[in-house]
Design a protein around this nucleic acid. Structure first.
Lengths: 199, 199
DNA sequence: ATATCCCTTCAACGAACGTTGAAACAAGTC
DNA sequence: GACTTGTTTCAACGTTCGTTGAAGGGATAT
């Protein structure tokens, strides 16, 4: 690396501009991640890797994002569990280097499949348990008409909630299926929907 | 109210069961809300109202959910801004009574339209700003080939991010359109998609 | 074995967030 | 006007959550 300090002025400016652009995008993605209930750093780290032409190691990431090695380590660990990042060996360097999973749609699919599906399934189970209790309440209401009425109403509404959960799960399933063929989400979605015959 | 303590045993049991069912469902919905980045209480309060056959006033809500009047007031205020709850007058009672918006799909639509759309649009704007900076970096790179290469790569990836945001916005638009006709989400979605000719 | 290098783990700190309880406020009622 | 009743606001509190920095562990080279 000969004479970095001798670079023309324009190049250093360009470098800085590129660096700013990277941080700006990282912040944007980080913000979105936060909105969706993830930690901000997940988005930031992923973005920097996604925007880098070559795999990066810990020190570079820490410096660019201004975070400690500890935090980076944790963040990378979580990114790996989502498959958002993988480590690639770089010869001549013992450090672990990382690159971003570039197929974002695949990432979204995995998250939806694991996190959201699990959550909605859990909610559905809870609602169904509540349904069971409400049914028991009706059975044991022993002719108290007011109680019976309330129980019936609640049963109906709980059914609505359950139906909603099931619809949500269906929607998720459609999204996941549509994502299998790595096509554009919109196109694939519409195909998946017409394939299942729009019930 | 004549002799509440004289109610048959079964009725009191049924009452309790109903009460437990309600809380259970409220907790489930609250958990989901939390996952999506809202406050837990929004889901809890809405659910209790949704499961009640008649509008409820503050004291009842506070007691059932075990929260302070202050917190309830704030929560109701936010629920109102989302249109998730509205206050209905109950004659013979000065207290304000509330009922839940029962059309959940309409609620989801409103949230998606306001919160998510705004967020994704913000992200898109940021990415476009980053694109502009990267372009400027290329223009000013004054023949440094390494920098030029990096800039080009980053430009390409930033374009990908921007395209992703735009796809997300399209998807949101489709969802919102599909929700206008208060049909079942899945059916309406598929109709909306085929109507726009699956680009 | 010892030393070096890098990664992970974790206790401790600080900031951010949700929640309370009381005080201010608004709207009737006497 | 004073009093009751119901609602909102807000400072203070406690908890939770993200982050750091240092200690521990695992490789690889000497």
């Amino acid at each position: 690396m000969s004479g970095e300090s001798a670079l023309p002025r324009a190049s250093r400016d360009g470098d800085q501009a590129l660096w700013r652009a990277e941080l700006r995008a990282a912040e944007a993605v980080g913000g979105l991640m936060e909105l969706w209930g993830f930690r901000r750093q997940l988005g930031r780290v992923w973005t920097v890797l996604f925007l880098s032409e070559r795999p990066l190691a810990a020190p570079e990431l820490c410096e660019r994002l201004q975070i400690s090695t500890g935090l980076l380590s944790m963040t990378l660990a979580e990114l790996r569990t989502w498959g958002a990042v993988r480590s690639v060996p770089v010869e001549g360097d013992r450090k672990e280097h990382f690159e971003a999973e570039a197929n974002v749609w695949r990432l979204v699919r995995r998250v939806l499949a694991e996190r959201e599906r699990r959550a909605v399934e859990g909610a559905l189970a809870a609602v169904e348990a509540a349904l069971e209790e409400a049914r028991a309440a009706i059975a044991g209401s022993a002719g108290d008409p007011a109680l019976r009425g309330r129980a019936r109403f609640r049963l109906e509404r709980l059914e609505q909630l359950a139906a909603l959960c099931r619809t949500g799960l269906s929607l998720l399933r459609v999204l996941l299926d549509s994502a299998r063929a790595d096509a554009s989400p919109l196109k694939a979605l519409s195909e998946a929907l017409s394939r299942r015959g729009a019930r």
